[in-house]
Amino acid sequence: GKELVLALYDYQEKSPREVTMKKGDILTLLNSTNKDWWKVEVNDRQGFVPAAYVKKL
Protein backbone atom coordinates (compact mmCIF):
# COMPACT_ATOMS: atom_id res chain seq x y z
CA GLY A 1 0.00 0.00 0.00
CA LYS A 2 0.93 3.62 -0.15
CA GLU A 3 2.86 5.17 2.70
CA LEU A 4 1.39 8.33 4.15
CA VAL A 5 2.96 11.24 5.98
CA LEU A 6 1.47 13.97 8.14
CA ALA A 7 2.47 17.61 7.66
CA LEU A 8 3.70 18.93 11.01
CA TYR A 9 4.05 22.51 9.77
CA ASP A 10 2.96 24.73 6.91
CA TYR A 11 5.45 24.78 4.06
CA GLN A 12 5.47 27.21 1.16
CA GLU A 13 7.22 25.96 -1.97
CA LYS A 14 10.32 27.92 -2.91
CA SER A 15 11.00 26.27 -6.27
CA PRO A 16 9.02 24.41 -8.95
CA ARG A 17 10.38 21.11 -7.62
CA GLU A 18 8.71 21.64 -4.26
CA VAL A 19 5.08 21.53 -3.16
CA THR A 20 3.12 23.62 -0.69
CA MET A 21 1.44 21.92 2.25
CA LYS A 22 -0.52 22.98 5.30
CA LYS A 23 -0.11 21.70 8.84
CA GLY A 24 -2.34 18.66 9.26
CA ASP A 25 -2.30 17.66 5.59
CA ILE A 26 -1.99 13.95 4.85
CA LEU A 27 0.36 13.38 1.92
CA THR A 28 1.35 10.31 -0.07
CA LEU A 29 5.04 9.54 0.40
CA LEU A 30 6.78 8.71 -2.88
CA ASN A 31 10.45 8.70 -1.91
CA SER A 32 12.25 9.10 1.42
CA THR A 33 15.77 8.01 0.47
CA ASN A 34 17.12 11.54 0.87
CA LYS A 35 17.30 12.40 4.57
CA ASP A 36 16.61 16.11 4.03
CA TRP A 37 13.97 16.21 1.29
CA TRP A 38 11.15 13.74 0.82
CA LYS A 39 9.13 13.46 -2.37
CA VAL A 40 5.39 13.53 -1.80
CA GLU A 41 2.18 13.80 -3.75
CA VAL A 42 -0.46 16.31 -2.74
CA ASN A 43 -3.54 17.28 -4.76
CA ASP A 44 -2.22 15.39 -7.83
CA ARG A 45 1.06 17.32 -7.70
CA GLN A 46 4.39 15.71 -6.97
CA GLY A 47 7.32 17.46 -5.39
CA PHE A 48 9.66 17.77 -2.46
CA VAL A 49 9.11 18.92 1.12
CA PRO A 50 11.61 19.14 3.99
CA ALA A 51 11.74 15.77 5.74
CA ALA A 52 11.76 17.53 9.12
CA TYR A 53 8.33 19.01 8.33
CA VAL A 54 6.57 15.67 7.98
CA LYS A 55 6.30 12.40 9.87
CA LYS A 56 5.37 8.92 8.72
CA LEU A 57 1.96 7.67 9.79
Score class of each variant (00 low, 15 high):
residue 16 P to H: 12
residue 3 E to D: 12
residue 16 P to N: 10
residue 9 Y to S: 08
residue 7 A to K: 01
residue 20 T to K: 04
residue 43 N to D: 14
residue 44 D to Y: 09
residue 30 L to P: 00
residue 51 A to H: 03
residue 20 T to D: 04
residue 40 V to I: 08
residue 35 K to R: 12
residue 39 K to L: 15
residue 14 K to S: 10
residue 9 Y to N: 09
residue 50 P to M: 03
residue 17 R to P: 06
residue 4 L to G: 03
residue 28 T to G: 09
residue 25 D to C: 06
residue 2 K to R: 15
residue 4 L to C: 09
residue 23 K to R: 09
residue 48 F to G: 01
residue 17 R to W: 15
residue 47 G to C: 03
residue 19 V to Y: 04
residue 16 P to C: 08
residue 53 Y to T: 07
residue 5 V to H: 03
residue 26 I to P: 01
residue 16 P to E: 11
residue 22 K to H: 10
residue 3 E to G: 09
residue 43 N to K: 14
residue 45 R to Y: 05
residue 48 F to D: 04
residue 8 L to Y: 04
residue 54 V to M: 06
residue 17 R to I: 12
residue 18 E to Y: 06
residue 16 P to D: 13
residue 35 K to I: 10
residue 52 A to R: 15
residue 36 D to P: 03
residue 55 K to N: 06
residue 1 G to N: 14
residue 11 Y to G: 01
residue 32 S to I: 07
residue 16 P to L: 10
residue 39 K to Q: 13
residue 15 S to I: 05
residue 33 T to Y: 10
residue 21 M to N: 00
residue 24 G to R: 02
residue 48 F to A: 02
residue 1 G to E: 13
residue 18 E to I: 03
residue 10 D to F: 04
residue 9 Y to L: 10
residue 44 D to G: 15
residue 41 E to S: 10
residue 13 E to M: 13
residue 29 L to D: 00
residue 57 L to R: 04
residue 52 A to N: 14
residue 7 A to I: 03
residue 42 V to C: 11
residue 44 D to E: 12
residue 30 L to F: 04
residue 54 V to N: 00
residue 31 N to Q: 10
residue 23 K to W: 03
residue 57 L to S: 04
residue 52 A to K: 15
residue 56 K to D: 05
residue 40 V to Y: 02
residue 31 N to P: 03
residue 20 T to I: 03
residue 54 V to F: 05
residue 48 F to T: 04
residue 30 L to A: 03
residue 6 L to D: 01
residue 45 R to F: 05
residue 53 Y to K: 07
residue 16 P to F: 10
residue 30 L to M: 08
residue 43 N to Y: 12
residue 12 Q to R: 12
residue 21 M to C: 06
residue 26 I to D: 00
residue 29 L to K: 02
residue 38 W to E: 00
residue 8 L to K: 06
residue 25 D to E: 12
residue 4 L to I: 09
residue 41 E to C: 11
residue 44 D to N: 14
residue 22 K to A: 08
residue 47 G to W: 04
residue 32 S to M: 09
residue 28 T to C: 08
residue 24 G to W: 06
residue 30 L to S: 03
residue 42 V to R: 15
residue 28 T to M: 12
residue 27 L to D: 00
residue 25 D to A: 08
residue 27 L to Y: 11
residue 27 L to W: 03
residue 50 P to I: 02
residue 28 T to D: 06
residue 37 W to V: 03
residue 42 V to G: 13
residue 25 D to P: 00
residue 18 E to G: 13
residue 24 G to S: 03
residue 35 K to P: 14
residue 50 P to W: 03
residue 11 Y to I: 01
residue 49 V to P: 00
residue 5 V to L: 14
residue 5 V to I: 08
residue 23 K to L: 05
residue 5 V to N: 01
residue 12 Q to V: 13
residue 33 T to A: 11
residue 34 N to C: 10
residue 36 D to W: 15
residue 49 V to Y: 01
residue 55 K to P: 01
residue 19 V to T: 06
residue 5 V to G: 13
residue 55 K to Q: 15
residue 14 K to F: 06
residue 53 Y to C: 10
residue 25 D to K: 03
residue 31 N to A: 10
residue 37 W to I: 03
residue 19 V to I: 14
residue 29 L to T: 02
residue 18 E to R: 04
residue 25 D to I: 04
residue 35 K to Y: 08
residue 15 S to V: 04
residue 9 Y to W: 11
residue 55 K to T: 14
residue 17 R to T: 13
residue 48 F to K: 03
residue 14 K to C: 10
residue 55 K to H: 12
residue 17 R to G: 15
residue 37 W to K: 02
residue 18 E to M: 04
residue 25 D to L: 05
residue 38 W to N: 01
residue 36 D to K: 13
residue 2 K to S: 11
residue 34 N to S: 10
residue 21 M to T: 03
residue 51 A to K: 07
residue 7 A to P: 00
residue 46 Q to G: 06
residue 1 G to D: 14
residue 29 L to R: 01
residue 6 L to Q: 11
residue 25 D to V: 04
residue 3 E to W: 12
residue 9 Y to M: 12
residue 54 V to E: 01
residue 11 Y to W: 12
residue 6 L to N: 03
residue 6 L to P: 00
residue 49 V to D: 01
residue 12 Q to P: 06
residue 28 T to H: 10
residue 6 L to W: 07
residue 23 K to A: 13
residue 40 V to Q: 00
residue 3 E to R: 13
residue 15 S to A: 10
residue 26 I to E: 03
residue 46 Q to F: 08
residue 56 K to P: 12
residue 12 Q to F: 13
residue 15 S to F: 05
residue 3 E to S: 11
residue 47 G to K: 02
residue 7 A to T: 04
residue 51 A to T: 06
residue 54 V to L: 15
residue 48 F to E: 05
residue 47 G to N: 01
residue 14 K to T: 13
residue 52 A to T: 12
residue 16 P to G: 10
residue 15 S to D: 12
residue 15 S to W: 07
residue 37 W to A: 02
residue 43 N to Q: 12
residue 27 L to H: 04
residue 53 Y to H: 07
residue 47 G to M: 06
residue 7 A to S: 06
residue 19 V to N: 04
residue 23 K to Y: 05
residue 24 G to M: 03
residue 43 N to M: 11
residue 45 R to N: 05
residue 40 V to H: 00
residue 57 L to E: 05
residue 21 M to S: 00
residue 36 D to V: 14
residue 29 L to P: 00
residue 50 P to G: 02
residue 23 K to M: 08
residue 11 Y to A: 01
residue 35 K to D: 10
residue 4 L to T: 09
residue 56 K to T: 08
residue 34 N to G: 10
residue 35 K to T: 11
residue 36 D to F: 14
residue 53 Y to V: 06
residue 36 D to Q: 12
residue 49 V to G: 01
residue 36 D to L: 15
residue 51 A to Q: 06
residue 11 Y to K: 00
residue 9 Y to P: 00
residue 8 L to A: 04
residue 17 R to Y: 14
residue 10 D to C: 05
residue 35 K to L: 10
residue 57 L to C: 13
residue 51 A to P: 07
residue 7 A to W: 02
residue 33 T to N: 13
residue 20 T to E: 03
residue 20 T to Y: 04
residue 51 A to N: 03
residue 52 A to C: 13
residue 8 L to R: 05
residue 56 K to S: 08
residue 18 E to A: 06
residue 12 Q to T: 15
residue 57 L to Y: 09
residue 7 A to C: 12
residue 31 N to G: 07
residue 42 V to E: 04
residue 27 L to F: 07
residue 32 S to F: 07
residue 54 V to C: 12
residue 46 Q to R: 12
residue 46 Q to C: 09
residue 31 N to L: 09
residue 4 L to S: 06
residue 55 K to W: 10
residue 32 S to E: 14
residue 14 K to D: 06
residue 37 W to R: 03
residue 56 K to C: 08
residue 37 W to D: 01
residue 47 G to V: 05
residue 12 Q to H: 15
residue 14 K to N: 13
residue 32 S to G: 11
residue 47 G to S: 02
residue 48 F to L: 10
residue 9 Y to Q: 13
residue 41 E to L: 10
residue 27 L to T: 01
residue 41 E to M: 11
residue 48 F to P: 00
residue 7 A to N: 00
residue 18 E to S: 07
residue 50 P to F: 04
residue 25 D to Y: 05
residue 53 Y to E: 02
residue 54 V to R: 00
residue 16 P to A: 13
residue 29 L to Q: 00
residue 48 F to N: 04
residue 3 E to N: 11
residue 10 D to E: 06
residue 54 V to T: 04
residue 56 K to G: 05
residue 37 W to C: 07
residue 35 K to E: 12
residue 55 K to S: 12
residue 52 A to V: 11
residue 27 L to I: 08
residue 45 R to L: 07
residue 6 L to R: 08
residue 50 P to L: 04
residue 13 E to S: 15
residue 54 V to I: 08
residue 5 V to M: 05
residue 45 R to I: 08
residue 44 D to A: 08
residue 18 E to L: 05
residue 24 G to N: 06
residue 50 P to D: 02
residue 33 T to P: 04
residue 36 D to C: 12
residue 55 K to C: 14
residue 46 Q to H: 09
residue 55 K to A: 13
residue 53 Y to Q: 05
residue 34 N to R: 10
residue 11 Y to V: 02
residue 52 A to Q: 10
residue 22 K to E: 06
residue 2 K to Y: 12
residue 12 Q to M: 13
residue 51 A to W: 02
residue 30 L to C: 07
residue 49 V to F: 01
residue 15 S to C: 09
residue 7 A to V: 10
residue 36 D to Y: 15
residue 45 R to W: 04
residue 39 K to R: 11
residue 37 W to P: 00
residue 1 G to A: 14
residue 18 E to F: 06
residue 28 T to L: 14
residue 31 N to R: 06
residue 7 A to E: 00
residue 57 L to M: 10
residue 17 R to N: 15
residue 45 R to T: 08
residue 19 V to Q: 03
residue 10 D to V: 02
residue 57 L to V: 12
residue 2 K to G: 10
residue 22 K to N: 09
residue 29 L to N: 01
residue 28 T to P: 15
residue 23 K to C: 07
residue 38 W to V: 07
residue 2 K to T: 14
residue 1 G to Y: 14
residue 34 N to Q: 10
residue 4 L to Y: 15
residue 53 Y to A: 11
residue 12 Q to L: 13
residue 33 T to C: 12
residue 2 K to Q: 11
residue 24 G to I: 00
residue 38 W to H: 03
residue 34 N to D: 15
residue 35 K to N: 12
residue 17 R to D: 14
residue 38 W to Y: 07
residue 37 W to N: 02
residue 38 W to I: 05
residue 27 L to K: 00
residue 8 L to D: 02
residue 14 K to V: 08
